[in-house]
Design a protein around this nucleic acid. Structure first.
Ligand SMILES: [Mn+2]
Ligand SMILES: [Mn+2]
Ligand SMILES: [Zn+2]
Ligand SMILES: [Zn+2]
Lengths: 142, 142
DNA sequence: ATGCAAATGAGAACCATTTGCAACTAGCTA
DNA sequence: TAGCTAGTTGCAAATGGTTCTCATTTGCAT
């Protein structure tokens, strides 16, 4: 809990630095995001945030997510035919494996792949700015 | 040209096999797709198809693309905040590098990455069904 | 040629996300 | 501490790519 509080305070600090006001609504959304262990979409975040502050509107959730994304505090994912999902951007970079039966999202990281991507871009005369790697899988049955 | 004609005939054959009628509109869309060297979206395909058959409607473009996708003849891509783009699925598998300044799409393939992906899925207890790998890049300036 | 299930065009519907606007309010100022 | 004001909010309407509805047309097997 101490952990989470620090993290939230830190995030709020980043916002204030960026000239973004920390309103009641934004604090609620930020707390939800900081505590989330999954990859909720806007309406799920809305549902959760309302438990903290019932006045939060879906519009504000969207506006806040855009602001947080712009501040680099939140990351947006657009998985295959699904609404956008979000997570805080404080964890080290990772990519995602999506279970196509259950929708479960599993995180992973491959330094080899990360490096290969940069090499490929370089070979083609480009600098890699960001990438998207998603594995759509089915649980192995043996 | 011979090449293209064969390819189109072949694609039409696949459709008939699948019990999908080859209409005037579908033939036009198929021809455009077979000749396309880029990754056009639905409205661009519509624009091009109308030059062959002016009656083609955007609805039919969408419906045809869905049908072709289901037959495995066409592949749909949903790049970062952009409309869906399409290409025939007869070329060997490849992934895409997107120039974030110009929007240009460049194809590439890395057998190493392909293999690593399968390994990662396996390690997590999954079978890789399909994946999405996109590199968002900026032209290197030196 | 005929019959009929499949396909079409036009426009309405969908739906996640964005936006306009009048009422609030965070946070600096005096 | 009260006041000021630009940033923020809730609500509702707008957006825009894509899908759907339905009356009409058409591919194609017989
Ligand atoms: Mn994640
Ligand atoms: Mn391609
Ligand atoms: Zn990665
Ligand atoms: Zn690939």
């Amino acid at each position: 809990m101490r952990q989470a509080k620090n993290r939230i305070a830190e995030l709020e600090g980043i916002l204030r630095e960026g000239g973004v006001r920390v309103t009641r609504q934004r604090a609620a959304i930020l707390k939800i995001l900081a505590e989330a262990e999954d990859h909720p979409d806007a309406s799920e975040l809305h549902r959760r945030a309302k438990e903290i502050d019932a006045t939060v509107s879906l519009s504000t959730v969207y506006r806040t997510l855009s602001a947080l994304e712009q501040q680099g505090v939140v990351q947006r994912h657009a998985f295959e035919n699904a609404t956008a999902r979000f997570e805080t951007a404080d964890a080290p970079h990772h990519d995602h494996l999506i279970d196509i039966e259950t929708g479960a999202v599993i995180e992973f990281r491959s330094d080899k792949i990360e490096q290969l991507q940069a090499e490929i871009a370089a070979e083609l005369g480009y600098d890699l700015v960001r990438h998207r790697l998603e594995l759509y899988c089915r649980k192995r049955k043996d």
